[in-house]
Design a protein around this nucleic acid. Structure first.
Lengths: 199, 199, 199, 199
DNA sequence: CATGAATGAGTTTTCATTCAT
DNA sequence: CATGAATGAAAACTCATTCAT
């Protein structure tokens, strides 16, 4: 009757459905029944593939990681690497709205037991580490303003992604998302770089 | 045994308890029973003060607004106004951990009906509007970099608060919160202002 | 603030409000809060006048009795006495819709403890007894058909009131209630009486 | 321990249990917990078979309809059809005590939303329509008294069933139910028919 | 693998009732 | 008398989870 699939496939389907639900309808709708309906199976069947809901939350985080980490290619100029990272994140705001709000909402973390908060934090730390590495390399190559505090800049860059995410969500952007992505990045970049102000 | 209080008081207590719970333990624990226990009353009693859980969510938003909006005093220099705004927000990260994550979580909005998303968005828009007004005035007074895109800067400033919030939460700050607050703001400020970099 | 009234007055008000609610909105709405709101007092205040809900149900029955029993005047011709009884009951369908459905719904009786069913039954028995007495006297005076089974006729007459009540409620009467009252009674009367069929 | 049954079966069981409870113990006891106990399952399980209590009320009405409508067979003589209808209804008073009081209680109707009153009314209308059709046909065949007002007679016949129902419930019948059924019907019949009384 | 029935432990909400003020 | 706060118990659902088929 129902399509039978290998557990591997189903697990991914379930994780994706969960991401979609959390992104679109919030954590309150993140229930076995809702996920099952989204996937097209019965709720009991969920637990043939996952031991419990916590395991699903774990899989969701794995999947998010998988989907996000694909972006940063580690080639060439550090500022360009940073650019591609930031732009890909900004862009995902438009294409995968659920994804970003998942990492930047602290709510999923509570869904898991104790490792929860740590796992989500780790996910975010990975982003920070990448940004930090780009900035450090750029500083070494003397591409940044002399007085730039790297750690503060890390907060700034990662924060900007969130700021963009919510501005887009609240429809508080003065121009289409696609356009704003570039504008915001260019502003940030010129603020990080040296030699633009020739007063 | 039971402390008797006026409904006015109880409503505030309940809203505050709700904020605390959401902030500390996540939306999943935002239940009548948990709130009641926190306040020290029975769960049924909650509904003598609030019609239903949605009304509590509404009160939570009102309270958040009340607590946040108190900050920005409109005195003198626009950049100083911005500073006091940003610093007060950054500071509240340490003192009122639940508050900020509430505004930046899109999950509460789902709890209310249709006005939900709009209400939370409005709360955030208020912050953006304030930042924008400061920046515009500063631009007029020629205090900012010539090439600065105000709208992008708004995203940057508001985003930074979020970036700081999560960095603090994830314990990803290299120095104590109190110290970092100033460092981050100084970095941002010098990036917005003109004429520091005399290349 | 609120008008203070003697318990006697309040008790009647409460009983009347209860009758109104049961009649108009059903037993499910027969709650202390609803009654209080109807009367214009707070729910706790109800229990200053009645020990508990059962006592209110009792008072409701007392009041119903009071309102119904006023009708039958025991004068003159037995069939005329019957007529005045039946017509007054039929008429109350239009004027006091709640009243009748109270006696002919077996639901209130459950609301009281054990005496409940017996009390409502007693109320109905009173009606039956009156009808029976009229019919017996009429039979003695040779006003009825020879073959008439009095007991069956009692069932018929009392039943007719109920039939009328529900037909009116369901808007299943082919003519206005006022007109039908008479038509139905005339039909019943001519069926009970002797000498109408002169085949 | 737990008996497993198909949802089809369970739904019927639940509806039947509900009918039994309402009939025997009144609407106040018409609760998920009571039904569950009657059926022998846990109360939460009820809602795996019915969306909510209203749906159960709906099913109750369906079931009542199903149980009642089976009776009237359309054979031969109109007065015999009427007889079989009336007797079957009178008889069900003894065998299915809850059934009748359900149709004549206006309380269930409140349990459903807006269609409630209409649905219950429709159920009663069906009975009236059947009685009316029998009487009309009988009148055409000249089996009834010349002066008989059909519409009044419909009220009389349907009312009689209710009168019988309550008389039986109140133990106000002078002879066993089985005997009275016939006696009452014979009385009614002879009153409707022409030419018995040859004054 | 998948289903469909069942469960136990919640969650929100209602309600009769109490009692200090 | 009346109020307004509080309560315990129950009602109506919800949900993760189990398990026989």
């Amino acid at each position: 009757m129902t399509t039978r699939k290998s557990s591997e496939e189903r697990r991914r389907e379930i994780a994706d459905a969960a991401i979609k639900i959390i992104g679109e309808r919030g954590l309150r709708e993140f229930t076995a029944a809702q996920i099952a309906r989204e996937v097209g199976i019965k709720d009991g069947t969920i637990f043939r593939h996952f031991k419990n809901m916590n395991e699903i939350t774990g899989a969701v985080l794995d999947r998010v990681q998988e989907l996000l980490v694909s972006a940063p290619r580690s080639t060439g100029d550090p500022l360009e690497r940073l650019e591609s990272f930031v732009l890909s994140r900004l862009h995902s705001v438009a294409t995968q709205p659920g994804l970003q709000s998942l990492i930047f909402s602290d709510q999923i973390s509570h869904a898991l037991g104790d490792e929860g908060p740590r796992r989500v934090a780790a996910l975010r730390d990975r982003g920070r580490a990448f940004v930090r590495s780009c900035l450090c390399e750029a500083a070494e190559k003397d591409l940044l303003r002399d007085d730039l505090d790297i750690e503060s800049a890390v907060v700034l860059v990662t924060g900007m992604v969130m700021g963009f995410l919510f501005a887009a969500k609240d429809e508080a952007l003065p121009a289409p998302v696609g356009e704003m992505e570039k504008r915001v990045w260019m502003t940030l970049r010129s603020m990080l770089e040296r030699t633009q102000v020739k007063s």
